[in-house]
Computed example of a mutant assay.
Amino acid sequence: MAGRPAEWSSALCGVGLGAVCLNAAVCTFQINRGAAAGFLLQALAALLGAVGFFWTPLGLSLAADSQSCLWVSTVLGLPLLGFGFHWLNGDHSTANILLGGALLLATGLEYVTEEGRAMAAQSVIVVTSITILILSIFTMNVYGMLASLVLSMAGLLLGVKTERLLTLRKEAVLSCLLAAGNLAFQWALRTQHFDLD
Results as ranks from 00 to 15, higher is better:
A180M: 11
G101H: 06
A95F: 11
L41H: 04
A188S: 12
G101S: 09
V124I: 13
V173P: 00
A172T: 02
T113A: 11
A19D: 02
W87G: 15
L174P: 00
L81M: 07
A25K: 10
A102Q: 02
L104K: 00
L44T: 13
C176Y: 03
F185N: 00
L47R: 09
L158K: 02
R190C: 03
I137L: 14
F54A: 15
I97W: 08
T107V: 13
L62F: 12
P5L: 11
L98Q: 08
C27F: 04
V20E: 04
L22V: 13
G52S: 12
C27Y: 03
A102F: 01
P79G: 04
T191H: 08
L17T: 01
L48E: 07
L60E: 12
L47Q: 12
G52Q: 09
G82R: 02
L146F: 09
N23H: 12
R164H: 12
A25H: 11
S175D: 14
Y111H: 08
V75F: 03
G84S: 02
Q192F: 01
L104A: 04
S61F: 06
N23Q: 10
G14C: 10
A102I: 01
W87Q: 15
L48C: 05
R33W: 05
C21T: 13
W87A: 15
C27E: 11
K161P: 14
L80G: 07
